[in-house]
């Protein structure tokens, strides 16, 4: 067990943990957008900044990527941290002024308007969709492309994401809910990645419940016999 303090309160963590999940578990509120406990921390949104004091030196760092060590002193509410968070959310809000989740978060941090020309982007470039697709699903269907202000999240070569199994993990994980999924009869479409796949019908209830391609990939990955996914989860 590793002991350290967050805003003066002593907390304990396992070796290898980073600050953010420990802080959230202990009831501290730290805003974050690109962190999700199911995938590796990435540190893109920079909202979860905290100040860490270690061996007499204090530095601002993202709590999602900082591995805990014995005796560190973490401060989540210093003037510098709050100023940086407000500026970051102002920058994100200027990118996606139409996004309710971002507006709400900005408001909570005391930012109601932006001092920059507003853009009309929807994606906040947190990379969660790609990380889930890579680390959890194993499909690797989407990636960041280009750099700097041209950065975007796209399927390879902006064509249809041919390795996408339309499982919808990216849809679930997106913090700003901009990856659309549509089911129309026997078809499921992930609209953002231009991917449409045929779904399988449950042998019991007759509902279309998941794309063939997805079920087949899962069956092969888990080395299950043919027919393992003939019945939908509700009827199983």
């Amino acid at each position: 067990m590793i002991r350290f303090t967050i805003d003066g309160q002593e907390v304990q963590a396992e070796k290898g943990q980073t600050i953010l999940p420990v802080a959230l578990d202990a009831g501290f509120e730290i805003p974050h957008l690109c962190y999700n406990e199911s995938v590796k921390p990435y540190g893109a949104c920079r909202l979860c900044l905290v100040e860490v004091r270690k061996a007499g030196r204090t530095r601002m760092t993202t709590s999602c990527t900082y591995p805990v060590t014995e005796g560190i002193e973490v401060s989540t509410q210093t003037e510098g941290v709050l100023r940086a968070r407000r500026l970051i959310i102002e920058l994100v809000l200027a990118m996606c002024p139409g996004d309710d989740a971002i507006r709400e978060m900005a408001s909570e941090l005391g930012v109601e308007d932006v001092r920059f020309e507003k853009e009309d982007k929807d994606c906040i470039l947190c990379g969660l969709c790609a990380r889930v697709c890579d680390e959890i699903v194993g499909a690797n269907a989407i990636h960041f492309a280009r750099k700097g202000s041209h950065r975007e999240m796209i399927p390879p070569f902006e064509k249809e994401a041919t390795t996408c199994i339309a499982c919808g993990a990216c849809v679930t994980v997106c913090p700003v809910d901009v990856i659309g999924m549509r089911e129309d009869g026997e078809e499921r479409t992930i609209t953002r990645w231009k991917r449409t796949l045929k779904m399988k019908q449950c042998k019991v209830c007759g509902n279309y419940f998941a794309p063939w391609f997805q079920l087949e990939k899962f069956r092969q990955t888990a080395n299950l016999p043919k027919g393992s996914f003939d019945v939908c989860p509700s009827c199983r």
Partner: peptide, 21 residues
Amino acid sequence: LKEESCGKCTSCREGTKRMYE
């Protein structure tokens, strides 16, 4: 710098872009 930022961190990607603006 705004062109050469890798674009990962919001603060660098958006910060350099807005400073340029």
